[in-house]
């Protein structure tokens, strides 16, 4: 690998991120770590969403996979004492099954565009309502708290020390970037892009549409469930409104589209900004004006979508490209 300025900058940035928990920040430290961990986890989930979104599979039901992942792992631990390492695998498997049950018919019957968005939205609602309906198990709309482990924190995947979660979150985020980049470079991408443009045409030139769509959906669902598991283990509390349903699904999509779903760092930029924004608004308005922070958040989202249709990162990238002098063609 050659050393380019961009790569060097990336390496320096990564080193800074890795060292951040060692910086003394007095009383602020726990809070800063908490915000950054959230950014890592939700960026990872955003990356998982964008694997589908960038190919025209706009899902408004990713909350379903989050919810399935988070609830399965928490309930298995609470009721059967099953370690999240095993429970997590089961949770991911379950979300993959859900994804297949929905995605197979969707691609088989050519459900795309608005219809796909609305079908996935229904799936998200089904999961949310099932969680509420099964209140004997799930605590209904009040949610459940993860039972604290007596000791063995590695087995229980519970850590009081936020630094552990910081590095775990960092690892998760880097893993998400790696998957994104792998997919970006693979053959699958060309195929999926052809499908995104025009499904029939892609099928005509020999792209196996159903198979590619299924693979990408399964991958996206599994990673989203993983993100849900990580979030549940970190927060140690799950609730149908924050982990399933239309609200959280929309938030994921917002962050990604805001950042720009066609670039590696787009989901991260969008997530970091939306989380930072809502944290900041929360601090500014505190508990005095309940709802004000969210009001401004919603308003800003609408404004961003209208005025920066390519996303923040995407628009900035386009701006930089325009600024740069056009390459002079080498004429002989």
């Amino acid at each position: 690998m050659t050393v380019t300025p961009a790569r060097a900058a990336g390496a320096v940035l990564l080193a800074l991120i890795a060292l951040a928990p060692l910086v003394p920040m007095a009383g602020m430290k726990q809070y800063v770590l908490h915000v950054v961990i959230q950014i890592f986890v939700w960026s990872f989930i955003g990356q998982a969403w964008s694997l589908m979104g960038r190919f025209g599979l706009v899902s408004l039901g990713h909350g379903a996979f989050l919810g399935v992942g988070a609830y399965a792992v928490v309930l298995l631990w609470n009721f059967y004492g099953l370690t999240p390492w095993v429970g997590g695998a089961a949770a991911i498997a379950l979300s993959v099954v859900v994804a297949l049950v929905v995605a197979y018919p969707c691609s088989r019957f050519g459900i795309i565009g608005h219809y796909f968005a609305l079908v996935t939205l229904a799936v998200g609602e089904v999961v949310r309502l099932l969680i509420i309906a099964e209140r004997d198990w799930t605590g209904g709309s009040l949610g459940v708290t993860l039972k604290a482990a007596s000791d063995a924190s590695l087995v229980a995947m519970q850590y009081a020390d936020k630094r552990v979660w910081y590095y775990a979150g960092l690892g998760l985020w880097l893993f998400g970037l790696w998957v994104w980049a792998r997919l970006d470079r693979s053959m699958a991408r060309a195929a999926m892009e052809a499908i995104g443009e025009d499904e029939t045409a892609a099928a005509c030139v020999g792209v196996r549409v159903t198979r590619f769509k299924l693979r990408i959906t399964v991958l996206s669902a599994a990673l989203t469930a993983l993100g849900g598991i990580a979030y549940a283990q970190y927060i140690t509390y799950v609730n149908p409104e924050t982990l399933a349903g239309i609200g959280v699904s929309l938030r994921i999509v917002f962050a990604v589209v805001l950042g720009g779903m066609y670039s590696l760092l787009g989901p991260t930029v969008g997530t970091a900004l939306t989380i930072a924004l809502s944290e900041w608004l929360r601090i500014v308005f505190g508990v005095k004006f309940i709802g004000m922070a969210e009001t401004i958040y919603g308003l800003l989202l609408v404004i961003f979508i209208i005025f920066l249709p390519a996303g923040i990162y995407g628009s900035l990238a386009a701006l930089v490209r325009r600024r740069r002098p056009a390459p002079v063609p080498a004429t002989a």
């Binding site: 608005h114 968005a117 999509v253 917002f254 309940i290 004000m292 919603g298 989202l301 979508i305």
Partner: peptide, 21 residues
């Protein structure tokens, strides 16, 4: 279409929370 969904989705957050406020 994604942007269209999201612009009205942002309105949803806005209306919900301004009503709460």
């Amino acid at each position: 279409p994604v942007n269209q969904l999201l612009a009205t989705g942002g309105l949803l957050f806005f209306l919900q929370s301004i009503a709460t406020f």
